[in-house]
Simulated assay, not measured.
Amino acid sequence: MKAIRAILGICLLGLPLIAEVRVSHADAVKNALKHPAPEYSPMAKQMRIQGDVEVEVKIAESGEVADVKVVTGNPMLSTTVVRAIKDWRFTPFTEGGKASPAVANLRFTFRQ
Rank of each mutant, 00 (worst) to 15 (best):
A28H: 05
M47V: 13
S100K: 14
R111H: 01
R22P: 03
R48I: 09
P38T: 07
H25K: 14
P101D: 13
K45C: 01
W88D: 04
I49V: 15
G14L: 10
I59R: 05
G51L: 11
F110R: 01
D87I: 00
V103W: 07
N31V: 02
L8C: 11
G97I: 07
F93C: 10
D27P: 04
E64C: 04
K58W: 09
L77K: 06
L17I: 08
P38W: 02
H35N: 01
Q112C: 00
K34M: 15
G73K: 00
F90T: 10
A102V: 12
W88M: 03
V71I: 15
F93K: 04
A60V: 10
K98I: 05
P42G: 09
F110Y: 09
K30H: 05
A37N: 02
F90Y: 07
S62N: 10
D27Y: 05
T109M: 01
V53A: 10
V68D: 04
R89N: 03
G9N: 11
S78L: 00
K58V: 07
T79V: 10
I18K: 08
G73L: 03
A66G: 00
L33W: 05
V53L: 10
A26W: 05
N74Q: 04
I49C: 09
V68T: 08
A44V: 05
G97D: 09
F110K: 08
S78C: 04
P92I: 07
G9D: 11
S24I: 08
T109D: 02
I85G: 01
R5A: 14
V57G: 07
I4K: 13
P75C: 06
R89M: 03
G73V: 09
R111K: 11
P92V: 09
T72G: 01
I4W: 03
V23W: 00
H25Y: 08
K34Y: 12
P16A: 07
P16G: 01
S41A: 11
G97Q: 14
A102I: 12
I85A: 00
Q50K: 11
G14E: 07
L17W: 14
G97E: 15
M43A: 13
N74K: 03
N105H: 12
P16E: 13
P75Q: 04
T94Q: 14
E64R: 02
L13I: 15
A3P: 02
T109K: 11
T72F: 04
P38M: 01
E64S: 12
